[in-house]
Design a protein around this nucleic acid. Sequence first.
DNA 1: CGGCAACTTGATTCTCTTCAAGGTTCGTGG
DNA 2: CCACGAACCTTGAAGAGAATCAAGTTGCCG
Lengths: 210, 210
Amino acid sequence: MPALNAISTSLKVSKGETLFLEGDDARHAFNVVNGHLRLARVGIDGRRQVMGFVSTGDFVGHTRKEAYTISAEALTDVTVCRFDRGAFEDLLVRFPMFEREFHKLTAGMLDDMQDQLFTLGRKNALERVASFLLAFVERQEEIQCSGHELWLPMTRADIADFLGLTLETVSRAFSRLKNDGILEIEQAHTIRILDREGLTDLASGDAETV
Amino acid sequence: MPALNAISTSLKVSKGETLFLEGDDARHAFNVVNGHLRLARVGIDGRRQVMGFVSTGDFVGHTRKEAYTISAEALTDVTVCRFDRGAFEDLLVRFPMFEREFHKLTAGMLDDMQDQLFTLGRKNALERVASFLLAFVERQEEIQCSGHELWLPMTRADIADFLGLTLETVSRAFSRLKNDGILEIEQAHTIRILDREGLTDLASGDAETV
DNA sequence: CGGCAACTTGATTCTCTTCAAGGTTCGTGG
DNA sequence: CCACGAACCTTGAAGAGAATCAAGTTGCCG
C-alpha cells in the first residue's frame, strides 16, 4: 500500500470532463477515490453503449491494449488516484499478493459483465431498469449504509445507453415502477425504493407477468 | 508447461454432454484441446443466455465463486485438459510468468465481452448476426487457415440465445444475408462468406441502411 | 427572470417476437 | 435399402413491445 501511494498522484476531475477518451494512449490507470464516472464506447454512427458506471474504490483505465477502448466521463466532481501504467504493472510484478487481488477484481468484473449480458440479451425494458436500480443500490450499500433513498448521478439517457434502450423507454419504466408502488420519485435523480422484493422479482424476471 | 501437464488429465466429452453445470461445485478448470462447447446460463423461467462459444485453446471453468456460474455443453465431441482447481491456482502462484499470461487472457475476455455488450445493446438483428459470423470466422482463422468456407457447430437456437434474438429472427437474417449475396448457405451449418467487406460493414453498423 | 437541458407523456411506426405450417436433414430400425 | 420420426430450419402472417416523432413540463444555473 505504501508502495502504491508512492507511484500515485491525486487528481481532480470536474463534472462533465473526461478522465480519458476512447482511442487515447493508455498511459495511466486510475482508482476512484470519490465521485461517479460513466464508461462508454461510441460506434461509428454515433450509437453509444455505456459499459458501466464506477465510483469509490473502483479501478478504471487498465487495459492490455495500447489505447483505451472506452471513454470515462465524470458524472460528478471526481477525485482519482492516477498511476503510471508502467509503474503500476511493475508493482503487480513486485507484489504477487497485490497482483492476485487485482486479478480477483478483474474476475469479479467478468461475473458482473455476464449478468449484464443476460440483462441485455434476455430481459424486457421494465426488468432491465429494475436490474439496473437493484445493482446500483447494492453497490451503494457496499460503499456506505444508505436508507433506501438514493441519488442517481446519471441521466435517463445514460441509463438508456447502459441498458440498450431509449431514454423515453427508461422514463416510462420509472413511471411504471412509481405507479406500481415500487419506487417513489422525489426528483428525477432522487428516488426511494418502497418495495425491494418487488424490484428483485422484476429484476430476476421472476415476476408474475402483470 | 511440463508442470502444467503434471496436474492435468485428458478428458473426452461426447457431443451433447455437459462438461459442467451452472451451480456445480467449481472443482476444476479446463483447457479445450479439441472441439466446440457452448457456455450458457438459464434464468428462472427458462430464458437462456448463451455467454459464448469456446474451442481449441480456450480456457473455461475457472471462477472466483464456489460454484460454476454457467454451464458448458459439448456441441461436438470434445477433448479437454482438466485441472484441479487448487493445483491450478497453486501453479499460478508458483509461476508468475504463467499467472501473467493467464491474467492477460482474462483481460482479453473482458474486451471481447465489451464488444458483445455493444452488440446486444445497440445493434439490430442483421448487424448482430453479421457480428457473430465475423467473430466466428476470425476465431477460426486464429486456429487454422480456412478458406472462407466454414462449418458452424451450433444451431440457430444457440446463435439466437447468444445474440438475444429468437431462432426465427436468426434464420431470417441468414436468409437475408444469402439474398444480399454476402453468404452462400450450402447446408444450414455449412456456409461460405462471399462478401467479407459487406459483412464487416454490417457488423460495425457502418452499412448504408438499405 | 429567462433560457436550456433533462424529463415526462402521448401518438404513431417499425422491428422483432410469437404463432403456425411446411420442408429438410439425418439417424434408426424394419 | 428404404421408410419413418425427430430435430432443426425456413418462411409466412399476426401481434406486441420498444423506437421514433412530437409536444409539453420541470428544474436548474446564469
